[in-house]
Simulated assay, not measured.
Amino acid sequence: MHDVTFSYVGQPQKSTATADQESAQNASQHDVLEHFNLDVPVTGILGLRGASGRGKSTVLKLLMRYFDPQSGSVTMSGRELPNVDASYRRHVQAMMGQQTYLFDTTIRENLLLANGGASDEQLREALKQASALTLVESMPHGLDTQVGELGSRLSEGERQRIGLARVFLRNADLILLDEPTSRLDSLNEATILQSINRLAESRTRLSEPEPALKQTPKYKPKYAKMKAKAQDASAKKPKYRTKYQAMAEQIQATQQAQQRSKSLAIVLVSHRESTMRICDEVIDL
């Protein structure tokens, strides 16, 4: 985000609007963010901390392009969001709001909303990452347990963990978490934070660069011989040089793409000091 200024432009109120509604409308005209800058790292957990009304949730909505700023730009990998295909953005981004909404159906069906083709094994892995697998397996019907209207048969902490598993199931590159622990007690907060931190660490390890053209010992001598021949040929004839360079560039591009696909960035919004303890960097708003 570069030099972003944003305000919520309210719709015209009817003449029957109350004084409180008119006050809220006037407040919405003020700039929530003014000349705001933010760089989200490729990996790790970035914390946005601040009191209510400071624009923390607004930042996430702008990153998801629920709104466009009045001025400034919001970009993804150097491209402004309006120029990035919406289906691609939905594929690489996932957001969990302040309240988890569950439909009046089974845990399985609620999870499949994030990935309709997921197998039971993938569902259980997502639940495990969210520290919810033991909870679900302890229920008489497991994944086929009915959660009730808006998840009324589950506690607040249980709903949050199911919601977190749903986010994890997306396997997104950027996860946005809006006050995920604000309604929880200290025990459930610790469980949620542990799950978030564990996922971030596992994806960070996966995204660490590997040695170029990593081979098993069986094939190393053969590859080294082929590489030496190609280098020798490229030194003698330009056409071989071009072919070798193209092959090397293609391999490098593939490795970089694989590395990017494994990386994970998390933006964690909270007013709680305790929530920020898992963040690699904290920005105060």
Rank of each mutant, 00 (worst) to 15 (best):
Q29S: 07
L113C: 10
L127T: 06
Q245L: 15
E210L: 07
T100D: 06
R166A: 04
C279N: 03
Y219W: 12
S87P: 03
E125S: 15
Q122V: 07
L60P: 00
A253I: 07
D3Q: 15
R205N: 12
K236M: 11
F103K: 13
K61S: 13
G97I: 02
T100R: 04
M139V: 06
I266G: 01
G10E: 07
G53T: 06
T5L: 06
A246K: 14
G117A: 09
Q70P: 12
N188H: 08
F67C: 10
T106R: 09
R166N: 10
Q255S: 12
E210S: 10
Q146G: 08
Q231M: 09
L46I: 04
E34D: 15
R65N: 00
K220H: 12
D68V: 09
V9S: 13
L154D: 15
E158K: 11
Y223P: 05
P180V: 02
M95S: 04
Y223S: 03
E249I: 13
Y219C: 11
V167Q: 00
S261H: 05
L187S: 15
P82D: 08
G53C: 06
A246Q: 15
L135V: 06
L264I: 03
R89P: 02
K237P: 00
R79Q: 11
L150S: 15
R108C: 14
A172S: 13
I107W: 07
L187W: 14
G55K: 02
R166H: 10
Q194P: 04
P180N: 06
L102A: 14
N171S: 07
S195L: 13
L133A: 14
L112R: 10
R205P: 05
R183D: 08
D20A: 12
T100C: 05
L268R: 00
P217T: 13
G44P: 02
G50P: 00
T75C: 14
L164Q: 09
